[in-house]
Design a protein around this nucleic acid. Structure first.
Lengths: 121, 121
DNA sequence: TCTGAAATGAAAATGATTTTCATTTCCATG
DNA sequence: CATGGAAATGAAAATCATTTTCATTTCAGA
């Protein structure tokens, strides 16, 4: 297992807390930082595991990494410009737990995303 | 420009109205239908343009195509054995719509999955 | 029958992501 | 100060969905 290279997190922060692995890599290259693409991917993956960043998907399928708070939440994402709003999901939590229990499932988790066109797009 | 091959739509319907291009292609292969992967992609793309199907992204980035208008449902998936239960998601629909409206979003869609360990696992 | 536009699909290209594996860096301990 | 092994690193190759290219086939209409 590998741990996150701190310069990757730092770069993601500087990028506005929202960028793809390729973008983080290119940014670090431009800044003259010596780092391999592999390490960028591994670091971001590790940050996701540690719940320090979230991963979403752009319309073209490229993964974008985004700094997030620690409280569990969901996202409302504009499918055109990518603007993201964090959503509290209390209703969903209960729904997921109830549905799962009804079917005898344990160790329940869930994912939920809302997408659409934001007011600007 | 090309038009959708009707067998592609028919196969997507038969797949439960929810499948990736690769899955549609494999299914048609297994059924002995002669068709190229390229045509499957083109047909699905065309169906998306015509708003006959929606396109979403799976967590791994693969695009999945879903018939529009079909009352859509969600899935409760066992993370050990893969058993899947289809769930009605009335509560989620409302939640997604309300949240999106609150933030001025239009053309709203959503994804939601619940996962856990089923009673057998 | 002829003709051209649309459809088709095999193969190559693309682009993100992952894997492999040899090398380098760290660091605790002798 | 060694030094030995674990963790980190990165270049290159592999993977995989998707798109593009391009030559061929189909088919409707003149």
């Amino acid at each position: 297992m590998s741990r996150s290279n701190p310069r990757v997190l730092s770069t993601l922060e500087r990028a506005g807390g929202f960028a793809s692995a390729q973008e983080v890599y290119r940014l670090m290259q431009r800044e003259g930082q010596k780092i391999g693409l592999t390490t960028v991917y591994r670091s971001l993956q590790s940050l996701v595991n540690d719940k320090i960043v979230d991963v979403l998907r752009r319309d073209d399928g490229e993964a974008i990494y985004r700094l997030c708070g620690e409280t569990h939440h969901h996202h409302l994402v504009c499918k055109s410009c990518g603007e993201t709003v964090e959503i509290e999901g209390g209703a969903i939590e209960k729904w997921a737990l109830n549905v799962a229990k009804d079917h005898g499932f344990r160790e329940v988790g869930h994912t939920a995303e809302i997408f659409g066109l934001c007011s600007k797009c």
